[in-house]
Design a binder for these strands. Structure first.
Lengths: 258, 258
DNA sequence: GACGGTGTCCCGTTCAGTGGAACGCACGCG
DNA sequence: CGCGTGCGTTCCACTGAACGGGACACCGTC
């Protein structure tokens, strides 16, 4: 799969253009035309033409040495209602959490077997956290992920278990039985904890944001040094913030009574 | 020619697809197929087919009642290096500012005659601010905008003046001569202030983030109630944060000294 | 100065894309 | 109730937009 990505190169214009765009991975500041062609299997002339058109729209930007994703893409992305509504509803609650704790605060949504981070407030006192707004992490080893799995549809949990609980640190829970027990505890407590399961030295408390049906649509978390975090003390704050966001979302969907 | 390209509907697939995507404006949670066709002038069958393909890539999502922008767009947008590098470099400094003041903090970049907000930390004590991550505001009436104009290339200032200083509030500076004087003051002080020029009741202090050549690539600001903000007291903090970000950016571009 | 690497451009071929038209459906109205 | 209206979806013969091999100019580096 690494040597030849010939498997499914779309022959539609749109498919090819999106193949080019999704060839950019986190860490790729910019890519040369040749590198893009190598990654995607798209002929040079074709890629050149498509990128030229994308550049006119400022979806990509041409630099002297290559091509990079452009600002219009960022602007368009911020209009996506799923993340936008959540971010706007959550902003004040996240700010409160941050004010109160000065630790790193996350807002994340589920996507497949991963979580995608929508917002991150970086605490200066805390450890450097690898997450990134718009970035992904496996659900099974993160606080937000476990909160989302515990209060999400069973199919997603099944998909995560089917994909396998990949070990990230010595403390990652990889036994499905143990994992189920943990999720049961999360459901009882309304909060999920994580102690060095995604990265050594880091701990986290998370709580789910629920929709009107009681299903988790997002999760909030506080992250800090594993040996300094008093998760029991922080749990109520996280839970309260998550409940507050849930309430705002519900009042939005139903502007007036039922 | 930048914002209004309604006249000519492109006949290329990519152009049409991007016309559809950019038909979404802030405030449009979702649009019906018919509404999209009306806005863009694209035939129903064509739009239907294009949206179908975009939906496969999760660039848009189909709902029972229409179409909305999807999560993949958000994810792709967060990879754009221009905003990503700035956001990552700025994150700790913005957090410091927020910790110290608990007022709304902004990070913005110039784009044409506007500014585009990259990050926003919502202060609970402060007024509701209309800005939005990924959103735009006219440069001439915002603190970040004036900081960027004062320390940006003269051509951008010329473009802003040519477009006209549109009045937003009774206090918006609309006289080009007066505006030039203000920018001169901004250059002297290293900070830009705004007092109810974009919205009544709101004031703001901003400072530019400079690249190695001394040109502004971004700006940081603190926003709060006009009658409660001591801009003179906050100016050094904003300036310090902006200088810190500038320093980090410069050390990034030059990993080892020349 | 031959080389392997870039990015750009040309142009005859062709198949992906087109869009008018027809369809089924869910409304609100007289 | 039948009717009209607006919606999303599907079909399919036609056509011009997209294709991409190939030629090109331009680097640096052996």
């Amino acid at each position: 799969m690494r040597s030849t990505e010939r498997d499914t190169v779309p022959n539609s214009v749109l498919g090819r253009a999106l193949t080019l765009l999704t060839a950019f991975r986190p860490g790729d500041a910019e890519l040369s035309l040749a590198e893009l062609c190598r990654r995607t299997g798209i002929p040079k002339a074709t890629a050149h033409r498509l990128l030229g058109e994308l550049a006119v729209w400022d979806v990509v930007e041409r630099t002297p040495t290559g091509v990079r994703l452009g600002m219009r893409l960022f602007e368009l992305g911020t209009l996506a209602p799923l993340q936008r509504g959540l971010r706007e509803a959550a902003a004040p609650f996240l700010a409160d959490l941050f004010e109160a704790t000065l630790e790193t605060v996350h807002l994340a949504v589920p996507d497949g077997i991963d979580v995608v981070y929508l917002q991150k407030l970086d605490g200066r006192r805390g450890p450097p956290v690898a997450s990134r707004i718009g970035g992904r992490m496996p659900a099974h080893c993160t606080g937000v992920g476990k909160a989302l799995l515990a209060f999400g549809p069973p199919e997603r949990l099944a998909a995560v278990l089917a994909a396998g609980l990949r070990r990230r640190t010595p403390r990652t829970v990889v036994a499905p039985g143990l994992f189920d027990q943990e999720l049961a505890a999360v459901r009882r407590n309304g909060v999920a904890e994580e102690h060095e399961e995604s990265a050594v030295g880091i701990a986290c408390v998370a709580a789910p944001v629920l929709d009107a049906d009681g299903l988790a649509v997002a999760a909030v978390s506080i992250t800090g040094w594993a040996n300094r975090m008093d998760t029991a003390r922080l749990a109520p704050a996280v839970r309260t913030a998550a409940l507050g966001i849930s309430r705002v979302l519900r009042s939005r969907d139903r502007p007036s009574g039922p």
